[in-house]
Write a protein that binds this DNA or RNA. Structure first.
Lengths: 199, 199
DNA sequence: CCTACCGATCGGTAGG
DNA sequence: CCTACCGATCGGTAGG
């Protein structure tokens, strides 16, 4: 993916590649991998299905790029939020990361939600690039939780790995119930961190 | 579903209906709704695809029954666990419910995992029967969390609804990472409740 | 529970 | 980026 010719094309031809991914993300968010068809994507973009193959080699390639962009977006948002809380307490940093994760997940576009929806890629093996992008993001949380543990914030006897899995599961599960008109991201982040570490 | 003639048939003919559901559950657990085909199910059972229509009216009907059975199974397991902890503290009851939920999810068959996998039914509207069965189970948690809140265990300022959503999200998310050889249900339940309410 | 068949739709390709 | 086409497969039906 993102081989040289493709990149050159998308630079010279403007955003058709991006346009395709935008529509794919929206459709994947709603329907997941198997429900979303190339015909739907093409129709949304306003081109013929066969023309997608001018920009991408396969359906997998389109989905892979959407999913990876989604994870990268959340990753960058969380890293930026942590950078802004450089000297803060582990608890504050944890809350900032949770808020950034939820905010990126729900506040911006379809890529992030599509990532969650598609993550379990069907039964097919998850492509290595997807696993790598995911792992890189999980490392942010590994470090953050280690920080928190060293500061003595974590209950003794708890495994940092299990904590991370429960935590990300709870946050990502919000794609199933979050409604902008009913929930405020700031309040959710505050409630979440209050559960982990009551004042 | 479960109209009289069908029920009569399955009684007289033995477990072919159940056999179909068993294989459907296993396949749905792995592949989800759209990836799982009627041909696969029929082949696993050892019959022709068209014969499935002797027992069920449609693919939706099969999936619906698997999903509902899965949720009912977890529901009953949690209710039984709570009944066995009748006089215990809210914290102990919470831990028992969490343990029962995780145990039902991972320790028994494919129906429960299939339920989680299929829950987001594609883009199609979730059948009313599925929503009813789900809601009935969620009510168990609503009551349990209310109990916990009244006993003063919950952080002030937290919404019981949000707590329930985060909690069930974290528990159900375990279908994505739980491995029997790496995790012990008892330990997971203990760690989970320790997060919510440290000693 | 079977054989035989259906229209619709899938991802992908040929060739321009 | 297009038209035209492909084999494969989907859920479902007819009729026994």
């Amino acid at each position: 993916m993102n081989d040289a010719p493709t990149t050159a094309r998308s630079t010279t031809e403007g955003g058709s590649r991006r346009l395709i991914l935008d529509h794919a993300a929206r459709l994947l968010r709603g329907g997941g991998y198997h429900q979303t068809t190339l015909r739907e994507i093409a129709e949304a973009v306003g081109i013929r299905k066969a023309s997608l193959y001018y920009h991408f080699g396969s359906k997998e390639e389109i989905v892979e790029e959407v999913v990876n962009d989604g994870v990268r977006f959340v990753h960058e948002a969380v890293v930026a939020a942590l950078a802004a809380e450089e000297g803060a307490s582990p608890r504050q940093r944890l809350e900032a990361a949770i808020r950034a994760h939820l905010s990126a997940l729900h506040g911006h576009g379809d890529y992030t939600s599509a990532s969650i929806k598609v993550f379990t890629f069907g039964a097919a093996p998850v492509p290595e690039s997807v696993r790598a992008v995911r792992r890189a993001y999980e490392d942010v949380w590994r470090r953050l939780i280690a920080e928190w543990q060293e500061a003595g914030g974590m209950p003794a006897g708890n495994s940092p790995d299990v904590l991370r899995l429960f935590l990300l599961g709870a946050l990502n599960g919000s794609t199933d119930w979050y409604r902008p008109e009913r929930h405020a991201i700031d309040a959710l982040a505050r409630e979440f961190v209050a559960l982990l570490s009551p004042h």
